[in-house]
Computed example of a mutant assay.
Amino acid sequence: MADGRLIALAALALTGCTVAGTAQPSPDPGLVAAYFNDLDSAAAQGEQQEQKFLTATQVPAFADRVCDLNGVTITAMPTLSTLRADPGWSPPGSDKRLSGQVYVVAVTLTIRQGNSVVGTQIGSQRVVIDHGHAYSFAPCPAQ
């Protein structure tokens, strides 16, 4: 990546596991698409607005794990045709159970510093739908 920035995204490129035989509700692509639209709208307003959005939509059980964006904004383009249930997944190294339904979707991320693109990344992002609200995991740019 440009400027030597390495973006470590906690919610991306993580291997999920599924539970065979466990029925999961069909994902609501509308809620997931709205999450990413809102993320991109916040990024368009600047780092502070995106930071507020990421804090407000962090999976509640992991509210203490929101990182500072460290001078960048991040936009995400999900490929909704890849959206699928990911039951049984939890962040690596955590024994916390997630409430709600966990879904995974392929995304293309664009990382900007000011008006300059400093990197792109393709990976998988988890979105948790709980009581009609979409939550996710805030990315953590490397220091």
Rank of each mutant, 00 (worst) to 15 (best):
G4M: 05
G4I: 03
A8F: 08
L9A: 14
L12E: 13
A13K: 15
L14T: 13
G16Q: 10
T22D: 14
A23W: 06
A23Q: 11
S26P: 13
P27M: 03
G30N: 06
L31E: 02
V32G: 08
V32Y: 06
A34N: 10
A34V: 11
A42H: 07
A42T: 00
A43T: 04
A43G: 05
Q49L: 02
E50N: 07
A56T: 02
A56P: 09
T57Q: 09
V59M: 05
F62N: 06
R65S: 13
C67H: 11
V72W: 03
M77Y: 00
T79S: 15
L80D: 12
S81N: 10
S81Y: 06
T82D: 07
A85P: 08
D86C: 13
D86T: 11
W89N: 10
S90M: 10
S90E: 12
S90A: 14
G100A: 09
V102D: 12
V102P: 11
V104F: 07
A106E: 14
V107D: 12
T110M: 07
T110C: 04
G114S: 06
V117M: 08
V117I: 15
Q121A: 15
I122A: 15
S124L: 12
R126E: 12
V128P: 02
D130G: 04
G132T: 00
Y135N: 01
Y135I: 00
P139V: 05
C140G: 14
P141D: 14
Q143P: 15
